[in-house]
Design a binder for these strands. Structure first.
Length: 718
RNA sequence: GGGCGCGUAGCUCAGUUGGUAGAGCGCUUCGUUUACACCGAAGAUGUCUCGGGUUCGAGUCCUGACGCGCCCACCA
């Protein structure tokens, strides 16, 4: 007892254990599937959803890391050749924004630096801060194979991106076109629909009188939330079935302030019930209007530029005004002319940039697109055929809904940090061509020195290749053969379409196989009162703080305890406290068992349940243990992490500690000692995926002869 | 406008195919017995949001209502 207590302190002290154990694990090499014992043959793989370089671990990451680590450790203990491949995403706009912000403090913009200098700066920044989140993943105990860490902007990865682009290009699925795109005036780039967030804003609905051509004091009244765009109107539209306007269709109005004659057209898209039933049409700055404009040959006039200022296409007094100023002036001027009928309060959804929260402008712009019809079909088929399954299944629906209505994907961005499109511009003719490397001569004119176009690809274009590019594609690597398709993707619901759908069709397209068998969509972590955790609201909880106060195991256990199939998870710290107590309980129960058994090392054998010299209590605990193992396996198989944790907790605390240990105190037999040690060891294995540190620490101290080097590679149920 | 999830003990949540309501934290009482007070034993606490229906029987199935939250959407 004296000696033991020197070795095992009275309470579990995570701080003295965790870093030491993590280092030990890394030394064993067992995070690397190639270094696992030979008996581990069957591959089991997970690729991490690569966190952004700009990232810091938040509760969502902590939850997801725990989930993935539980799966990996569980399968590793079951003798699988496990690979959990880590990495980071270069996070185009997000990363560039971070560095831009730093520059701004020095009064500089990225344009002051120029492209090359700016990219250099971002790499520098990445070198300095880029590993933070990976280190945080280590802190929480993630057993990733760090030797395989990938970054979505490293050279091999860039090759994969170029090859993928070229394949699409050669199929004719990539095209350039002038379309209405979402434009962020701050980030100075186009954005895909999925990169927009709609926020409710209180605005107004302005009713404006458009005078009918040649009819004195007769008007058609249109309602709009954006009066300033009237300067770019090329028509007015009404519903063809609208009796009120029947005789006006085909007539013309004189656009106020501009004095342009524009037609009244009939289009089925117009809702008779809304506003006045008559709509001003601004094809260059609204998607619906664009379509209507095309149908009726209205033409388009771009009146808002990339900086959200009015262009020279508007009357001189408005040129150069910001959208906001233009709105005020237009209203004032209309009022003066007596053309403003009324103003109503109106709340509506305003599109915002998901990276900087600036209001998005819709503008006409030349961009690159990836055709989605075929690819969306592939993605739908993969789930329909059950080659890949959503867990829980209900997430299929938003996935299908998006894919069925998806528009072509705008893949070009006007930022600098990212994969440049492998497209080159002839200097003599207005023509471009594809070339993966810097071309020796121009493929168009044969004479000029072509220049690579400056656009980069949407970050999600490269993320879409992650499951196979991270395994070495386009090279035919051993890893790709062995670990693709991966077994599980565990991720958050907000990137089902942004990322998951795109990985599925990419995998299908390039490898002819879906990248994962199961897609586990975990709950979103909310605050105690059901609010979103966010930095700006100050409602976030830092998992690193929890680890500091309670230890990594406690944090893992406390989070996972709450994981059910629910969409949301309201985080309560009480559960982490519970986790801490539980770790302490594990520690002390182990201490007791070791005191009972003594220092002499035993050969551990699985006791036979029907052996005669076992007492009723012995038999009972062994039986319950068997059942518990089965339950845990079944729960984890179904991704029911909370239930698994609760089952384990219950067995360990109540069956093993409260009942069996108490009885064992009065049974001083060889069989009981063996059973104590056997059940404890079994529990350590079962507990290890959930609370890896404390269990490994104890394992290392167990007085048994036939021990593995690490608990990580013990045999699950022997 | 469409979709999804939730409403069970003071708080956060379980509750498998319908059969007398459970856990953790908190609370009450007792307990320093060979691990653990980060403990043990015993205990209290619920019109399962509200109507209606199916059923011998509903927290569980159906159907309305109310409340909360999330996502999608080109109603100006």
């Amino acid at each position: 007892m004296e000696e033991l207590s020197k070795e095992l302190s009275k309470g579990y002290e995570p701080k003295e254990v965790e870093d030491k154990i993590y280092e030990f694990w890394q030394k064993t090499g067992y995070f690397n599937p190639d270094k696992l014992p030979k008996r581990c043959k069957k591959p089991y793989s997970i690729v991490i959803p690569p966190p952004n370089v700009t990232g810091n671990l938040h509760m969502g990451h902590a939850l997801n890391a725990t989930i993935q680590d539980i799966l990996i450790r569980w399968k590793r203990l079951n003798g699988y050749k496990t690979l959990w491949l880590p990495g980071m995403d270069h996070a185009g706009i997000a990363a560039q924004n971070v560095v831009e912000k730093k520059l701004r403090k020095q009064g500089l913009s990225r344009f002051d630096l120029g492209r090359e200098k700016m990219i250099e700066k971002i790499w520098e920044w990445k070198g300095e801060y880029g590993d933070i989140i990976l280190n945080q993943l280590k802190k929480i105990g993630s057993s990733c194979d760090w030797s395989r860490t990938r970054f979505t902007l490293d050279d091999e990865y860039a090759k994969a991106v170029k090859i993928a682009f070229a394949r699409y290009y050669k199929k004719g699925w990539i095209y350039q076109g002038e379309r209405i795109v979402n434009w962020c005036p701050r980030c100075q780039t186009s954005l895909s629909d999925l990169e927009i967030e709609h926020k409710e804003e209180k605005g107004h609905l302005w009713y404006i009188k458009y005078p009918l051509l040649g009819k004195f004091k007769k008007f058609i009244v249109v309602a709009t939330t954006r009066p300033e765009t009237m300067l770019g109107d090329t028509g007015v539209a009404v519903n063809p079935k609208d009796k009120r306007y029947e005789n006006l269709i085909g007539k013309k109005v004189v656009l106020p302030l501009v004095n342009r004659e524009i037609p009244i057209v009939a289009d089925r898209l117009i809702d008779k019930e809304f506003g006045t039933g008559a709509v001003k049409i601004t094809p260059a700055h609204d998607l619906n209007d664009y379509e209507i404009g095309l149908r009726h040959n209205l033409g388009s006039i771009s009146i808002i530029n990339e900086r959200a200022k009015l262009t020279e296409k508007v009357p001189i007094p408005y040129q150069g005004l910001s959208v906001k100023d233009a709105r005020e002036k237009v209203i004032k001027d209309l009022e003066k002319l007596g053309l403003l009928e009324k103003i109503e309060d109106y709340t509506h959804q305003v599109p915002k940039c998901y990276r900087c929260n600036r209001t998005i402008e819709l503008i006409l712009s030349k961009q690159w697109f990836l055709k989605m019809d075929k690819l969306a079909g592939l993605a739908i088929r993969s789930i329909k055929n059950k080659n890949t399954r959503f867990q829980p299944k209900r997430w299929e629906k938003p996935y299908f809904d998006w894919l069925k209505n998806v528009r072509d994907w705008c893949i070009s961005r006007q930022i600098w940090w990212g994969h440049r499109l492998p497209i080159w511009q002839c200097q003599n003719k207005d023509k471009q061509f594809l070339s993966l490397e810097k071309p020796k001569k121009c493929e168009v004119c044969g004479k000029c020195k072509p220049e690579q176009i400056s656009d980069v690809l949407d970050t999600w274009f490269s993320s879409a290749l992650w499951p196979f590019a991270a395994l070495g594609w386009p090279e035919k690597t051993k890893d790709l053969r062995e670990f693709y398709p991966t077994n599980v993707l565990s991720t958050a619901r907000d990137i089902i379409n942004l990322w998951v759908a795109r990985m599925i069709f990419s995998g299908d397209e390039f490898i002819k196989k879906e990248p994962f068998k199961d897609i586990y969509i975990h709950a979103t972590v909310l605050t105690r009162d059901g609010k979103r955790m966010s930095k700006s609201l100050g409602t976030g909880i830092n998992p690193m703080g929890l680890i500091e106060r309670y230890g990594a195991d406690a944090t893992r256990f406390g989070i996972i305890w709450q994981v059910t199939e629910n969409q949301d998870l309201r985080f309560v710290e009480d559960n982490i406290v519970m986790g801490k107590k539980f770790c302490n309980k594990i520690w002390n129960a182990s201490r007791f068992v070791m005191m009972q058994v003594g220092k002499q090392k035993l050969e551990i054998k699985k006791p036979k349940i029907d052996a005669k010299n076992l007492t009723l209590a012995d038999k009972r605990i062994l039986k319950k243990l068997d059942k518990t193992i089965k339950d845990i396996d079944a729960n984890l198989e179904k991704f029911q992490f909370g239930k698994a944790a609760q089952t384990l907790y219950d067995f360990f605390w109540h069956d093993f500690c409260d009942k069996y240990i108490e009885v064992a105190k009065k049974q001083d037999t060889k069989e009981t000692k063996n059973t104590l040690l056997y059940v404890l060891l079994s529990c350590l294995k079962l507990l290890h995926p959930f609370v890896p540190f404390v269990t490994e620490e104890i394992y290392q101290k167990l007085p048994i002869k036939n021990k593995e080097k690490s608990l990580m590679i013990e045999k699950w149920s022997e």
